[in-house]
């Protein structure tokens, strides 16, 4: 089984544009997920009346349905109600809808792990709510939640592999297309795996490093 190197060189630009698309969707999706997750977890933590129940419902709904189904609904179902979104916007929205709840759960467990004493001490030295979150709760919660947040990032990047279902030219659809057109199955599959490893291995090493750094913030356990 020898590889057709000419073919590999020829299709590398196609894979490059596909991997850029994946990276773009993943980065925007992860950042938005963290924002949504942070807002949701704070609502849950402070038990904001009215919103709290809504957030719980959202979290359960999004955690218990697969991304493929969510994307199908967003891309093929919603236009019937007059909500038209481009496929890339759909992918980002779907990823955020899914990721937001995972991030919220991880952040919430971090927030809840910060001991009551810390909050009371903060209040007793006269911090206001914002200062309390910024200087006392947040740093400690982050160091506890970091491993879970990192795992969520990897999970979300992996989940982007399904976006070809809504006609985006990502790594999966490019691979399928090349296999169908040229029958160079070995080369196409190899490039697919290499691309995903290039994407995910650095992220997972980075997360191990960040996790180790944040251990220093752990306090009074």
């Amino acid at each position: 089984m020898s590889l057709n190197w000419d073919f590999i060189v020829e299709v590398i630009p196609i894979y490059r544009s596909a991997i850029i698309l994946t990276i773009r969707i993943a980065i925007i999706g992860v950042v938005l997920s963290i924002i949504v997750g942070a807002v949701c977890s704070l609502i849950n933590y402070y038990k904001v009346r009215g919103l709290n129940l809504l957030v719980r419902a959202y979290i359960e709904l999004s955690r218990n349905t697969p991304l493929v189904i969510q994307l199908f609904f967003l891309y093929y179902g919603l236009p019937k109600l007059g909500i038209m979104l481009s496929n890339e916007a759909c992918a980002i929205l779907g990823l955020t809808f899914l990721g937001g709840s995972y991030m919220a759960e991880s952040l919430r467990s971090g927030l809840e792990a910060v001991s009551r004493v810390q909050v009371e001490l903060g209040l007793s030295i006269g911090l206001n709510t914002f200062q309390l979150i910024r200087f006392v709760i947040f740093p400690q919660a982050m160091s506890i939640a970091m491993p879970a947040l990192g795992a969520n990032c990897i999970f979300l990047i992996k989940e982007t592999s399904v976006v070809s279902i809504i006609a985006l030219r990502d790594l999966m659809s490019v691979t399928k297309e090349l296999i169908g057109m040229y029958y160079n199955t070995t080369e196409s599959l190899m490039l697919l795996v290499v691309c995903y490893l290039l994407l995910l291995l650095p992220v997972s090493f980075l997360l191990i490093f960040v996790e180790r750094r944040l251990r220093y913030a752990e306090f009074g356990v």
Binding site: M172, T175, L189, S204
Partner: peptide, 19 residues
């Protein structure tokens, strides 16, 4: 299995089994 997406594994076996 943690690093490579499951969908990629499906593709690998689905298209690669013939080879």
């Amino acid at each position: 299995f943690r690093i490579v997406p499951i969908l990629v594994w499906l593709f690998l076996l689905f298209f690669g089994s013939a080879i």
